[in-house]
Simulated assay, not measured.
Amino acid sequence: MDHVRAFVGLALPQSCQEMAGRLGAALAPLCRGRLSRVRTGQAHITLKFLGETPVSGPAGIEAVGEALGGIRFAPFRLNLAGGGFFPGQKRPRVVWAGLREGAQACRELAAAVDAALAPLGIAPEGNPFAAHLTLARIREPERGGDWPAMLALLTQALWPPVPVAAMTLWRSVLSEHGARHEVLREFPAAAT
């Protein structure tokens, strides 16, 4: 194994994992095509997707970990609320929950991750960062679904607040049952 599929993000507590699971189960019957829910325990907020990353070398996982270890950030709080579709409601591919609180702190942390990894030759994201929690992927959007009812479910969901005390570097292992995320390294927030 000379590469790992990796990303940087924020872990979510069990209460959010359970809520994501319940929402995913409620969304599934509203989609006429296949809908793949995020597995319980795998829900997270992505700060940067790295993709296939060398295990060693100047832009390898160890160098990435060292660069991320230099980022200083204060603990903050997230509160999920609402949501929507990527790329949009006309032909949705991804159903996501948004943030009512903590979006600015996530943007700043994502920018710090980009800045820390740029000297390794890892390019910043091309699109503006939008903090979100992916709940499900719509595999056959052309078959349609009750998109307004999905949006109503997202709007009505009451998420527990999330204290963010660390950032995580994960390895994502793909299988026929979906992705499984393994923690490679955690980076705690600086004490205030």
Rank of each mutant, 00 (worst) to 15 (best):
R171E: 15
A111D: 09
S36Q: 13
H181S: 03
R77N: 13
L158V: 13
L23Y: 04
I71N: 10
F49M: 06
L78S: 11
E62D: 15
G121I: 05
D114F: 05
G88Q: 02
T192C: 07
A63W: 03
F187R: 09
L133P: 12
K90D: 14
S175M: 03
A111E: 10
G51F: 15
V162S: 09
G121S: 10
I71E: 09
R77W: 10
P160D: 11
R22C: 02
L35D: 01
A118S: 14
A118D: 11
A28Y: 00
G70V: 12
W96M: 05
R91V: 09
R107H: 08
P92Y: 00
R137P: 11
A166G: 02
P75R: 04
T168Q: 14
G83C: 04
F76D: 02
L78F: 08
T40V: 14
P13T: 06
P141S: 02
A149R: 07
G83W: 08
L78R: 03
P58C: 15
L151R: 12
R100A: 15
K90F: 05
A136D: 04
D114L: 05
G33Q: 03
L23G: 07
W96D: 01
A157Y: 11
R77C: 12
C106H: 02
A25R: 15
L23K: 06
P29Y: 00
A111F: 06
L12S: 04
E52Y: 07
G41N: 10
Q42L: 02
R91A: 12
G84K: 03
V55I: 13
I71R: 13
G24C: 08
A81Q: 12
L10P: 02
R143K: 14
V95C: 01
L169Q: 10
A115F: 04
L23D: 00
P148V: 13
C31V: 15
V162C: 14
L120R: 06
A103F: 15
A28T: 14
A131Q: 04
I122G: 12
L169V: 03
E182R: 08
L50H: 10
A63C: 13
H181F: 11
G178E: 05
E186I: 08
S175H: 01
A81C: 12
T40P: 11
P161Q: 14
P160M: 10
G60S: 08
E142T: 13
P160S: 09
V173P: 00
R72D: 07
H44K: 08
R139E: 11
G57E: 03
A28E: 14
F7M: 01
G88V: 04
V173R: 15
P128R: 11
P148L: 10
L184M: 14
T192H: 06
A112R: 13
Q42F: 01
W170P: 09
R171M: 09
L109Y: 04
H177S: 11
V173K: 13
N127M: 09
R22L: 06
A191F: 09
F187L: 09
T134K: 05
Q156R: 15
S172Q: 12
G88W: 02
P188V: 08
V95I: 13
P54V: 00
T134F: 11
F129N: 02
E62Y: 07
G126Q: 10
D114P: 01
Q42M: 12
G41E: 06
L154D: 07
P141N: 03
R137L: 02
A166T: 06
R5N: 03
F86Q: 06
A190N: 11
A118W: 12
V4G: 14
